Simulated scan of single mutants.
Amino acid sequence: MFLVAALNQDVQTFDNMVAALHFHMYQPVVLANSGEFGGSTAQVPLPKHERLVAHIHGNNQVAVSVFELDPAPFKSTKPARAPKQLKTAPAGYKGRP
């Protein structure tokens, strides 16, 4: 994951750079800009409707975005393994100590 802490006034240019970087670097890119200027964003190289994780514009405002990004799919070229489905637990089963 590429994380940038910024104090950047040129919000539009950096938005465009993050949009390009997450594809060129093939990893999540998070730009956390000062609330004085706005323009914080988090993007990942996923299909179009899933790539924008967070995007805040506007200046002189305080905004907090809370999100989770899993970098694991971008660490390996192996296809992701689907988790195994477990059968239903027996009645009264509370797990093992």
Rank of each mutant, 00 (worst) to 15 (best):
M1S: 14
F2D: 10
L3T: 12
V4R: 14
A5W: 10
A6E: 13
N8S: 14
Q9F: 09
V11P: 15
V11D: 14
Q12I: 12
T13K: 14
T13Y: 11
N16K: 14
M17L: 15
V18I: 15
V18K: 10
A20N: 08
A20L: 08
L21I: 12
F23T: 14
H24F: 13
M25A: 15
Y26C: 10
P28W: 02
P28L: 07
V29C: 10
V30Q: 04
V30D: 03
V30N: 05
V30M: 09
L31S: 03
A32Y: 00
N33H: 04
N33F: 03
S34P: 06
S34W: 00
E36T: 10
F37G: 06
S40L: 06
T41V: 12
Q43S: 04
V44E: 02
V44H: 01
L46F: 02
P47C: 02
K48P: 04
K48Q: 05
R51H: 03
R51W: 01
V53L: 03
H55P: 04
I56C: 04
G58N: 01
G58Y: 00
G58R: 01
N59V: 00
N59Q: 03
Q61G: 09
Q61N: 10
V62F: 07
V62E: 06
V62H: 06
A63P: 06
V64W: 00
S65W: 00
V66Y: 06
E68T: 08
D70W: 01
D70M: 05
D70H: 05
A72S: 08
A72M: 05
K75P: 00
K75C: 07
T77D: 02
K78L: 11
K78E: 08
P79S: 07
A82V: 10
K84N: 11
L86R: 09
T88R: 14
A89G: 12
P90F: 05
P90H: 02
A91S: 12
G92M: 12
Y93C: 13
Y93V: 11
G95V: 12
R96G: 09
P97K: 09
